[in-house]
Amino acid sequence: MARHVIKLGSSIVAHDDGSLRDDVLQRLADEVARRHAAGDDVVIVSSGAIAHGLRIMRPGEGAADRPTAIEDLQAASAVGQGKLYRVYDELLRDRGVTSAQVLLTFFDMSARGHYLNARNTLRRLLDWRVVPVINENDTTATDEISFGDNDFLAAQVAILVEADQLALLTTPDGVFTADPRNDPAARMVEEVTDYAVLDELQIGHETSSLGTGGMRSKVVAAEMATAAGIDTVICSGRREGALRRVLDGEREGTRFPARETGYTSFKLWLKYAKPSHGTVLVDAGAARALKDGGTSLLPVGITAVDGTFDVGDAVEIAHGGGLIGKGITNYAADELRRIIGLKSPQVREVFPRATEEAVHRDYFVLA
């Protein structure tokens, strides 16, 4: 038995005019039902609600550019979301599979309590042998690209449910060394183990007219998932048989093998889901201790504090222009500025009941 998360971008779910790609969705339902019957768990993360909603509200207009006003995007999502899910539900039901609609926002991922609630709900649905169909709740989201066309959401969901594999379905066959539409010499990268190499490739943010993702967001999502020990594949969502080969473990698309990072569930959440609200600059000694010694950050090693944050917020920790990691602060920004460079006895003179660690090692993760 295996647990798969399958993500479909807007360009896979819908044509440029917002009409649904019935052939793609039919094949997806076939594969989900096949793996489900074999005992596997499957989670679907789908974009396309906005595209489909615009199609419904603009009949006969042909291809339409994605609007930029947040109220237009939210309204289009409200129109399209339920209708898109109904298609998934009917396709899966016809194949003997029960599904459930789940809508998540960035806040659900960034707030620890909401994160745990979402995890528990999804895991219970899988225990019940239900296929969750997940999308971002665009009608309440405040940033229409907060999940990068759901690439980051898919990675977070894969981490939440402890998936074995994440499949990111897109238009190209995988990650290419350059845009194959413009460069005939472009070749597909079959496997990625060194993410630094990707910086040299021409991986851009180009999307369809109704999408918000792009290959770069998919690569970042793959990096997130593999850090949690999840094998990830970026492959074509339109080519017949591609998804079947991925789910069966055969060679297809660009593979990102799982990495052994040793992160706990909490530290994965801290690293990838909880947003930072400021930066704490440290001296060379503190930087070495954090990177090599696994120690906590004490005020004595802090040289400057940038930004505004409260106790319990995540902050980035940096030295010499380089990011060291991220941690949850035990002090608000103004409090931390009062004890910069002070040793522990001096800190207790300023805040008698405060903890001596600015960031405890248990609540810190390396970049």
Rank of each mutant, 00 (worst) to 15 (best):
L160D: 04
V161F: 02
E162G: 08
E162L: 00
A163T: 07
A163D: 09
D164C: 06
D164S: 14
L166K: 03
L166E: 06
L166G: 01
A167T: 09
L168R: 01
L168E: 02
L168V: 05
L168W: 01
L168S: 05
L168Y: 02
L169H: 12
L169V: 12
T170N: 11
T170P: 10
T170E: 09
T171E: 09
T171Y: 08
T171Q: 11
T171G: 00
T171M: 07
T171H: 07
T171C: 01
P172F: 04
P172K: 01
P172E: 01
P172H: 08
D173Q: 13
D173W: 02
G174T: 11
T177R: 04
T177S: 14
A178S: 14
D179M: 07
D179L: 05
D179H: 05
P180D: 07
P180N: 09
R181H: 11
N182T: 15
N182W: 09
D183T: 12
P184L: 10
A185N: 14
A185Y: 06
R187S: 13
M188V: 13
V189W: 10
E190P: 14
E190Q: 15
E190H: 14
E191C: 14
E191K: 15
E191Y: 09
E191D: 03
V192M: 11
V192Q: 11
V192F: 10
V192W: 12
V192A: 11
T193D: 12
T193L: 06
T193M: 07
T193E: 14
D194A: 08
D194Q: 10
Y195Q: 04
V197I: 13
V197M: 14
L198S: 08
D199A: 15
D199Q: 14
E200A: 15
E200P: 03
L201G: 05
Q202S: 13
Q202N: 12
Q202F: 00
I203R: 01
I203Y: 00
I203S: 06
G204Y: 04
G204F: 07
H205S: 13
H205I: 09
H205E: 14
H205V: 10
E206D: 14
T207K: 08
S208N: 13
S208C: 12
S208A: 12
S209Y: 02
L210H: 08
L210C: 02
G211M: 10
G211S: 12
G213P: 05
G213R: 09
G213S: 09
G214I: 07
G214L: 05
G214P: 04
M215S: 12
M215W: 06
R216K: 13
S217Y: 03
S217Q: 05
S217L: 06
S217C: 13
K218Q: 05
V219T: 12
V219P: 10
V219G: 08
V219M: 08
A221I: 00
A222E: 05
E223D: 03
E223L: 09
E223Q: 11
M224N: 01
A225H: 01
A225M: 03
A225W: 01
A225L: 01
T226M: 07
A227R: 13
A228L: 06
A228K: 01
A228H: 04
G229Q: 05
G229S: 03
G229L: 01
I230A: 06
I230G: 02
I230W: 03
I230P: 11
D231A: 04
D231K: 03
D231G: 00
D231H: 06
